[in-house]
Design a protein around this nucleic acid. Structure first.
Length: 835
RNA sequence: GCCGGGAUGGCGAAACUGGCAGACGCAUCAGACUCAAAAUCUGACGGGGUGCAAACCCCGUGCGGGUUCGAUUCCCGCUCCCGGCACCA
C-alpha cells in the first residue's frame, strides 16, 4: 500500500518552502499549550454545539470515511468559531459491542486490553488530523464512569414502565454458539461461518418505543434534517391507517345449516374471534379466507382435530427456519386449519389457514385475505385453489372482468360485488365500510405502525450489564441508583456458548447478589445492553464530562442542548437517530431535559469510495490516512477530501487529484511570503476577492465545501496571474477563508503576517457588496433560443439600453432579419429575441 | 418488489429559483525558464465541420417523447448504477 501513495512534487528543503510536517507539529503543540480548543462550557456567551457521530475504535485504525466526516464537521465548527460563536466540538468512542468482542475473540486479546489501545491509536490519528476537538471532554462508552449513566438511563425507562421483558425470536448460529443480529445473517446463513442459522426463543428486554411512534413521526416535520434521513425514518415508523376487523370462528350452532362443512367436536366447544388488521376494509366483500401466523396464540384453539398434526408439523418447520430466510423466501407455503370463520359482510363461511407469510410481529398476526386485490393473497389463493373475488373495478372494468392478477390500483377505482357499497370510490369505501362494520360491532378504525419495540438484550459479554436483580421473594428489582454502576467483571472466558445466555451467567461470584429490597439471596440479570443504548444519549454527556455526580448537569444542558449541528452517516438514519430521539423524549417526560428533540439540524455526509467501489480490505482499496498525512500533510489531505465531491454525496478517492490541492497551498504560502505592503491593491483583484469572500461564506454553511475550495483556487489564479506580486490586503483575507480547511498552515501564515492571536479568534472577513457586485454586467443574447453573443452593459442599464447594445453588436445583428416578435429580458442575465 | 440517490469531456466535478453547459482540479499536449530534468509560469484541451487567417457554423448533459422564446434543470415513458428496506396486510 505504501508504495501506491503518490509523493508530492517539489524540493523540500528550500528555505522559504512550505513544510507541512513542521508547521503542523508546531501548531498542534501551540493549540495544546494555549488550550485553544478547550471550550469554556460554563462561561460561553454564544454556545454552538457542533457534533459528529462518534466512531467505533476499530483495531485497524481510523478509516478515511471517518476522517471525511470529521473534517466536514470540523470545517463547519471552525467557520462558526470565526463567526464569533463559542464552539464545542467533542469526540468520543463507541467501543462496546459484538464487533469489538468478535475481533477480540479472533485475535485472542481481551477487549479490556484491546479497546484502550485502539482508543489510543484513534486519538493519535485524530489529533494529527488537526480537528478543533476539546480533548478535555471525551467519552468512552466502555468506561464505568460512562456506562454507570447508561444503566441510569435504563432505570429511567424501567421506572416509567417503558422497559419490559418477554420471549422473542432471535437468530442463533449453532456453530458460533451465539445470537446474531439480523444484519449478521446473510441469506439465512451466518455471515462468519456460513452455517444455517436457526430461530430461538429467549427472554429479552425491550423498550416500548412504539408508545412514542406518533410523536416520533409527527416531530419530524419540525426538524431541519437531510430529507433522505427524514424519509427513511418515516418509512421505518411505517404508520398506516386501517381497521381491525373481528371474524367469528364457526361453532356448532351456526354450522347446523351448513351441510358442506365438516365440523368436529373440538371446534364446536368454544367460540373464538380472530382479529385481523387491514388497510383495505373496503375489500371485505372479497375476503375469501383468513390466515393466521404460525405463532398466532389462537392457532391451536381453532385447528380441528384432523388437522392438528399437519398444523403442528407446519409450525415446527416454520420455526426451524431463521427469521431472515423466512422473510426472504418468496414461495408461499401454508396449511389449512380445518376451521371456518364467518365473513361479517357477506355472512359466508371462509376457511382459516396458517401460513408463514403472515408475520406475528405486525398488526394482529392474522389477516383477512383478499386475493383479488393483494398480490400475496392472490399468489397464495392460486397455489391452494382458494376462491378469488373481484370487489374493485378500475376504469373500463366491471364486476365480471376476469382477474389474472391482483388488481391493486386504487386510483379511479370503484367498489363492485359489494352489495349496496357498489360504486363507491376506494377512499370513500374505506370510510363507509369501516363505519358500517363498526356499527354492527365487528370492527374499529385503528392505526398501526411497523415500528417494533426495541430489543436491547444481548446475550453477550462486551456491554454494560443490565441493572436488574431477580429475587424469589420480590421479583424483578431494579438496581438502586446508589449502587450503580454494575461493573462488568474482567473475566477470561467471555466466549459465548451453546446455552444462549450471556457468558456472565457462568460467573456465580458475579451474578449472586443480595436482593436490594429484602436482602435475600438473589441473582443479577446476565444480559448486557445493545450498543445503540450507549450511543442513544452520549451527546447529553459531553458538556458535563467531569461531573460524576449526575449524567448531565441541568444548567449546562439547558445552555448547550439541543445540539445545533449534527453530522453523520446515513447508515444511522433510522436506528441510532431514532433511538436517540426516543430516549430524549423519555428523559423529557421524566423531567430531566426540557426539549423533545436532541438534534436541531442534521446533515448526512456521503460515502467515500475508491475506483468506483466501496473501500474494503478484501478489495485492497483501503486508504490509510496516516500514509497520506505523512506524505502530504494533514492540511492538504483534509482539503483534498473536501474537494473530491459534494460533502453530502461523497466522492471517489483518487490519488491523482491530491497534487492540485497541495499546489494551491504552496501558492498560498508563496503569496503570503511575496506580499508587499506598499502601494495600492489592484481594483480588479479586490473585486474578485470580495466575490470570493461572499461565495465561501455562502458555501460553507451549506456544506458545499468543494465549490468553496474551487472559488478560492479561482481567486488564487487571479491573485497570482502572470506571477504578479500580491498586495498584503489581497492575501490576508484569503488566509482566513482557507483556515477552516487547512488550519495549521493558516495559523502559520497568519503569524507570518504579524498576528499574535489565533486566526480562529480573529473573525471572518467581511465583503463589500457593492464592490463584489461590480459596475458592469454581462448579458447573454439569444436569437430564437440560441445564444448568439453577449454584451457588457452598465449595472443599471434598462431593457432598451441592453437591446440597443445588442443590436449594435454585429455578431448579434447579423441574425436579426426583421423586427423581433417578442423580446424577453431577464434583468442582469439575458436578452432573448424571438423572430 | 418497494423507498431514496445518481448518470454531464480522457477522469473527479461545476452550473443558486428554467437563462452563455463544462467553473475548479487531475491527466494530456505545446511554449517559456534550464546544459538537461524536476519544480514553476504561459497557453490549448467535448465532438464534427468551413476558412490562409481573424473568425464562423452544426451537434452535444444516460435513452425516447413533451412543455417553453429558451431545458443538465420542469412533465410523461424507459435503461443502467449506487445505497437502504424487504411478504408490514
Amino acid at each position: 500500500m505504501t508504495d501506491s501513495v503518490p509523493t508530492p512534487a517539489g524540493v523540500p528543503g528550500e528555505p522559504a518552502g512550505y513544510l507541512p510536517a513542521a508547521v503542523e507539529a508546531k501548531w498542534r503543540a501551540r493549540w495544546a499549550d494555549r488550550r485553544d480548543n478547550v471550550t469554556d462550557i460554563a462561561g460561553a456567551k454564544r454556545p454552538f454545539y457542533a457534533l459528529m457521530m462518534f466512531p467505533y475504535p476499530s483495531a485497524e485504525g481510523l478509516h478515511v470515511g471517518n476522517l471525511f466526516a470529521f473534517t466536514g464537521n470540523d470545517i463547519f465548527a471552525r467557520f462558526q468559531r470565526l463567526q464569533g460563536y463559542d464552539v464545542f466540538e467533542p469526540i468520543g468512542f463507541d467501543a462496546f459491542g459484538i464487533h469489538s468482542e468478535n475481533f477480540a475473540l479472533k485475535i485472542g486479546t481481551h477487549p479490556m486490553e484491546l479497546i484502550p489501545s485502539n482508543v489510543a491509536n484513534f486519538t493519535r490519528q485524530l489529533e494529527r488530523a488537526g480537528l478543533m476537538v476539546d480533548w478535555t471532554r471525551t467519552v468512552d462508552t466502555t468506561q464505568p464512569d460512562y456506562y454507570k449513566w447508561t444503566q441510569w438511563v435504563f432505570l429511567q425507562l424501567h421506572q416509567r414502565g417503558l422497559a419490559y421483558k418477554r420471549k422473542a425470536a432471535v437468530n442463533w448460529c449453532p456453530s458460533c454458539k451465539t445470537v446474531l443480529a439480523n444484519e449478521q445473517v446473510e441469506g439465512g446463513t451466518c455471515e462468519r461461518c456460513g452455517t444455517v442459522v436457526e430461530q430461538r426463543f429467549l427472554e429479552q428486554w425491550f423498550f416500548r418505543i412504539t408508545d412514542y411512534a406518533e410523536r416520533l413521526l409527527g416531530n419530524l416535520d419540525t426538524l431541519d434534517w437531510s430529507n433522505t434521513t427524514k424519509t427513511a425514518q418515516r418509512g421505518w415508523i411505517g404508520r398506516s391507517e386501517g381497521a381491525e376487523i373481528r371474524f367469528r370462528v364457526l361453532n356448532a350452532m351456526e354450522d347446523a345449516g351448513s351441510a358442506a362443512v365438516h365440523v368436529t367436536a373440538e371446534i364446536s366447544s368454544g367460540i373464538h374471534e380472530i382479529a385481523v388488521f387491514t388497510t383495505r376494509p373496503d375489500t371485505i366483500f372479497g375476503a375469501t379466507y383468513l390466515v393466521l401466523s404460525p405463532e398466532h396464540p389462537l392457532l391451536d384453539d381453532v385447528t380441528t382435530a384432523d388437522q392438528q398434526d399437519a398444523v403442528a408439523a407446519y409450525r415446527e418447520q416454520a420455526g426451524r427456519q431463521d427469521i431472515i430466510s423466512r422473510k426472504t423466501n418468496k414461495e408461499k407455503t401454508g396449511v389449512f386449519t380445518g376451521a371456518y370463520a364467518r365473513n361479517p359482510a357477506t355472512g359466508e363461511l371462509i376457511p382459516v389457514w396458517c401460513a408463514d407469510y403472515v408475520l406475528m410481529e405486525y398488526g394482529t398476526g392474522a389477516i383477512m385475505a383478499v386475493p383479488g386485490h393483494d398480490e400475496r393473497d392472490f399468489e397464495f389463493a392460486t397455489k391452494f385453489a382458494l376462491p378469488i373475488v373481484r370487489v374493485v373495478a378500475g376504469p373500463g372494468q366491471d364486476a365480471h372482468t376476469p382477474l389474472h392478477e391482483a388488481y391493486t390500483d386504487d386510483a379511479d377505482a370503484r367498489l363492485c360485488n359489494s352489495e349496496h357499497f357498489d360504486g363507491y370510490p376506494v377512499d370513500e369505501g374505506k370510510r363507509q365500510l369501516t363505519a358500517w362494520l363498526e356499527s354492527k360491532g365487528h370492527a374499529k378504525a385503528v392505526v398501526n405502525f411497523r415500528l417494533h419495540d426495541w430489543c436491547i438484550s444481548r446475550q453477550r459479554y462486551w456491554g454494560p450489564p443490565i441493572p436488574i436483580i431477580y429475587c424469589d421473594a420480590c421479583g424483578t428489582v431494579p438496581v438502586p441508583e446508589k449502587d450503580l454502576p454494575v461493573i462488568l467483571p474482567n473475566i477470561a472466558d467471555y466466549r459465548p456458548d451453546d446455552s444462549g445466555v450471556s457468558p456472565l451467567a457462568r460467573h456465580e461470584e458475579w451474578y449472586r447478589v443480595a436482593c436490594p429490597q429484602c436482602g435475600a439471596k438473589a441473582r443479577r440479570e446476565t444480559d448486557v445492553s445493545d450498543t445503540f443504548l450507549d450511543s442513544g444519549w452520549y451527546f447529553l454527556r459531553y458538556p458535563s464530562v467531569g461531573d460524576d455526580s449526575v449524567p448531565f448537569d441541568r444548567e449546562i444542558t439547558r445552555r448547550w442542548l439541543p445540539v445545533d449541528s449534527y453530522i453523520g452517516g446515513n447508515e444511522h438514519a433510522v436506528l441510532h437517530l431514532l433511538y436517540a430521539r426516543f430516549l430524549t423524549m423519555v428523559l423529557k417526560d421524566a423531567g430531566h431535559v426540557d426539549f423533545d428533540e436532541p438534534f436541531t439540524k442534521f446533515r448526512a455526509h456521503g460515502l467515500i469510495i475508491r475506483d468506483g467501489a466501496k473501500m474494503s480490505k478484501s478489495r485492497g482499496n483501503v486508504v490509510n490516512p496516516d500514509e497520506y498525512i505523512d506524505k502530504w500533510g494533514a492540511d492538504t489531505f483534509r482539503t483534498y477530501l473536501m474537494f473530491l465531491g459534494p460533502f453530502e454525496e461523497g466522492g471517489d478517492f483518487r490519488d491523482a487529484g491530491i497534487s492540485g490541492v497541495k499546489r494551491f497551498l504552496d501558492r498560498l504560502w508563496a503569496s503570503v511570503h511575496a506580499a508587499r505592503a506598499e502601494g495600492e491593491p489592484d481594483r480588479e483583484v479586490m473585486q474578485k476577492l470580495h466575490q470570493t469572500i461572499k461565495k465561501v461564506g455562502e458555501d460553507v454553511p451549506r456544506l458545499s465545501y468543494n465549490t468553496a475550495i474551487a472559488a478560492m483556487m479561482e481567486y488564487m489564479n487571479v491573485l497570482r496571474r502572470g506571477e504578479r506580486a500580491p498586495h498584503r490586503a489581497e492575501v490576508e483575507p484569503l488566509v482566513s477563508l482557507v483556515s477552516p480547511f487547512a488550519p495549521h498552515v493558516a495559523e502559520e501564515l497568519w503569524e507570518a503576517l504579524g498576528h499574535t492571536r489565533s486566526v480562529f479568534d480573529s473573525g471572518w472577513p467581511s465583503f463589500d457588496a457593492a464592490l463584489a457586485g461590480g459596475e458592469t454586467m454581462t448579458i447573454a443574447v439569444q436569437i430564437g433560443g440560441k445564444t448568439r453573443g453577449s454584451v457588457v452593459v452598465a449595472k443599471e442599464a434598462t431593457q432598451e439600453a441592453v437591446l440597443a447594445a445588442a443590436m449594435a453588436d454585429p455578431s448579434v445583428a447579423k441574425f436579426v432579419t426583421g423586427t423581433p416578435k417578442k423580446v424577453i429580458y431577464v434583468p442582469g442575465r439575458l436578452l432573448s429575441l424571438v423572430l
